[in-house]
Measured scan of single mutants.
Amino acid sequence: MSGNGNAAATAEENSPKMRVIRVGTRKSQLARIQTDSVVATLKASYPGLQFEIIAMSTTGDKILDTALSKIGEKSLFTKELEHALEKNEVDLVVHSLKDLPTVLPPGFTIGAICKRENPHDAVVFHPKFVGKTLETLPEKSVVGTSSLRRAAQLQRKFPHLEFRSIRGNLNTRLRKLDEQQEFSAIILATAGLQRMGWHNRVGQILHPEECMYAVGQGALGVEVRAKDQDILDLVGVLHDPETLLRCIAERAFLRHLEGGCSVPVAVHTAMKDGQLYLTGGVWSLDGSDSIQETMQATIHVPAQHEDGPEDDPQLVGITARNIPRGPQLAAQNLGISLANLLLSKGAKNILDVARQLNDAH
């Protein structure tokens, strides 16, 4: 009898209710805020589980004197976190989706994509230029951005401005803007500013005609071990179906173009009346040469937790077992079709030249 009692006690200790789920994140304040929001949602869904947040620095956090596009290494903000995932030191990792490459290392998958916040870019102005827009900034004003995508589009749109690289986390960039006289304004992701509670610093939100956004911008991705079915089931509740389908289309477009950090590629997606609209573009580094096109596809946005595919093969690095396969494939095909259209119009040449120029500098 006593033996059975011990077995029952052991089973209770090993039951999922007692389990601590370890969540990996970057150390920056924004990353911690984003991770806290994901953990809060998981806690609400699984009140019996405990969650421990483990923060670590990544290569991208450490190399702050070089433009991201020049470092010449993929997975700048993800490699150390993936290493911890691989060694079973954490069970899942919360990322900004735009930091996750469209091809993940073997053994990993994006197990959830959370509801997207505003994906557009924002302009934050130096205190002396508050009330201005990019259009009304004085001639030769210097605007800071760490992104080739932003610089290429904005140089084309605002030729009277000069664009220079600015690195560091959000706090560091804002301090550089406010305390030094080098920059009249800087460009940042609206979602990051909003998550930090800095709505009052948003001086201008850039519309798609001015600057399309990065693939996955404004959404959070939760990376897990691809074979860890328990954790895949656990994080599945975080999937937002519309965000998922938009981001599958965007990531398929980028992957098929073979774009990345070192080339200016941008997108804009919208879901309306059962249609998914995808606009994508590529630019030369100075913005003088560009190709942009829009395509659409009829896609039914499923309700969360309709029964999805059981075999769960990944699409552009994403596993969404609780979302039907048909809409996911339709979104992926839309991204591939748009990429093929741009490639047929000469996108590869623009991107190759951009890559060579970026590598040469």
Rank of each mutant, 00 (worst) to 15 (best):
R116G: 06
K74N: 13
P127V: 07
T102V: 05
Q153L: 07
L76I: 06
G144H: 01
L148H: 04
P105W: 09
L100C: 15
D228H: 02
S290Q: 00
R251A: 00
L68S: 10
A152I: 13
D233Q: 09
A354I: 00
V263G: 00
P119W: 10
L232E: 04
T172F: 10
V316P: 06
A55N: 07
R175L: 09
Q332D: 08
S141G: 11
R201S: 01
G346L: 09
Q153M: 07
N118A: 14
F163I: 13
F51A: 07
F108N: 08
F129T: 09
G60M: 00
T145G: 06
E139N: 13
R225L: 09
D240Q: 13
I53R: 08
Q356Y: 06
P101Y: 01
A320N: 00
S96I: 01
G218I: 01
G197K: 04
G346T: 08
Y46I: 08
L42G: 03
H239G: 02
V222Q: 02
C247V: 09
T133P: 05
P309G: 15
K70I: 13
A331G: 15
S262V: 09
Q292I: 15
R251H: 02
A189Q: 03
A320Y: 00
L174R: 07
V267N: 15
V39M: 08
C247T: 06
E306N: 15
L64V: 05
K157L: 12
L342R: 01
S165I: 08
Q275R: 12
T172V: 06
M56D: 14
E258D: 09
S165T: 14
V130F: 09
S337N: 14
A189T: 06
E73G: 06
E52Q: 00
A214S: 07
V123Q: 02
V39I: 06
L329I: 13
V124E: 04
P119N: 05
A44E: 13
L170R: 02
R195Y: 10
P309C: 04
R175G: 08
A331V: 05
L254R: 04
W283T: 05
N322M: 10
S146Q: 14
I110Q: 00
G111V: 04
I323R: 08
S69V: 10
G60S: 01
D359W: 13
G197N: 04
G287L: 05
L232Y: 05
L245E: 03
P127C: 03
T269L: 03
A189N: 03
L42E: 03
V282P: 01
F163R: 09
E242A: 14
Y213D: 00
V316M: 01
A189E: 03
N200Y: 10
A226V: 13
G274A: 15
G280Q: 03
I166K: 04
L161W: 07
L245W: 10
E223F: 02
N322R: 13
T243R: 06
K227E: 15
L49F: 02
H120C: 12
P241T: 08
Q194M: 15
C247M: 04
M271R: 05
Q292W: 07
H207W: 14
T243S: 10
E223I: 03
Q275D: 02
E52P: 07
L97G: 01
L285D: 14
E250C: 01
G335T: 04
T172P: 05
I187H: 01
M212P: 02
L81Q: 02
Y277F: 14
D61R: 00
R246Q: 14
P241S: 14
L177N: 07
S146I: 06
K348T: 04
G72V: 10
I166Y: 07
G216W: 02
P106S: 13
L148P: 15
A266P: 02
A67T: 14
D307L: 00
H83F: 11
M271H: 15
V142T: 10
